[in-house]
Amino acid sequence: MKRHTRDAYAEALVELGRKRPEVVVLDADLSVSTRTARFAEAFPDRFFNCGIAEQNMLGIAAGLAASGKIPFVSTFAVFASMRACEQIRQSIAYPRLKVRVVASHGGITVGADGASHQCTEDAGVMRAIPNMTVVIPADATETAWAVHQIVDIPGPVYMRLGRPAAPVVYPDASRLRWGKVTLLREGSDVVLLGTGIMVSRCLEASAILEAEGVEAAVGAVSVLKPLDEESVVALARRCGAVVTAEEHSVIGGLGSAVCECLAERYPVPVRRVGIGDVFGQSGEPDQLLAHYGLTPEAIAEAALEVIRRKQS
């Protein structure tokens, strides 16, 4: 079963809006795509379409937050994280304002629009900014749950959603603990740590590995910053080998975060499955995922390699 994370976002946002009058929503002429149009319909007086002017939008959000509002700001990930990057840094993150940047169209599964609209750098960029919390939910269930979690975090939040419908990982939110790695499968030969849509692909990879007699643990890392280092270290200690999987550049995202942690605290062989140091291109989402090696097979192959490395 698949479901759009942005649909889940919009529904949760309307629900949140009913409970919390201080929640306001801003968009930059993409409210149909990001689905914030649903909030606009429900609460026209609390929705601001800022037009095609992302830098100004993030600044307005800062001013609203400085005046007691809790703005949720949506546009495509590439524009949120980079077009308005310095506005997020200076106007929002530096003063620790409660602005929630919820960016849709993260990663390469944006598809046919090509590299200009595909965002493979956002987690790295946002992770480098002090005070920022960085979230990539695994599916629609977690997205809806996370909307209610992030609203009261005492600082800025960047949350990334995708364009296509994402496989549902969680039937309900009962297993989720904010900020913690969710262990989806026990195993002791290797741990597969995924984020976003790659979580379901890690689960598929674990089935492939099981057929080869390999017991892979699978952990979902939705909060990339602050990273749940205790769980990452514990899983590395138990399994002795780690594969990370993300729809993001191998520079700066989950793979980097895990390597930074393990290099200092518990070095074990690691392979980062992600997009190499290249731009994307036009194509269908599944074609692109295959082209850039973001498949269950590629994760399983990486797992076998790190297992060999730990044994040698």
Binding site: D45, N56, A62, G63, L64, A66, S67, Q90, P95
Partner: peptide
Amino acid sequence: VEVCTGSLGQGLSQAVGMALAGRMD
């Protein structure tokens, strides 16, 4: 001091946000 500024061009957007918030309230 009401906002963090220093990177030019950003303060007016924040002022717009404050004025909007004032009107909403």
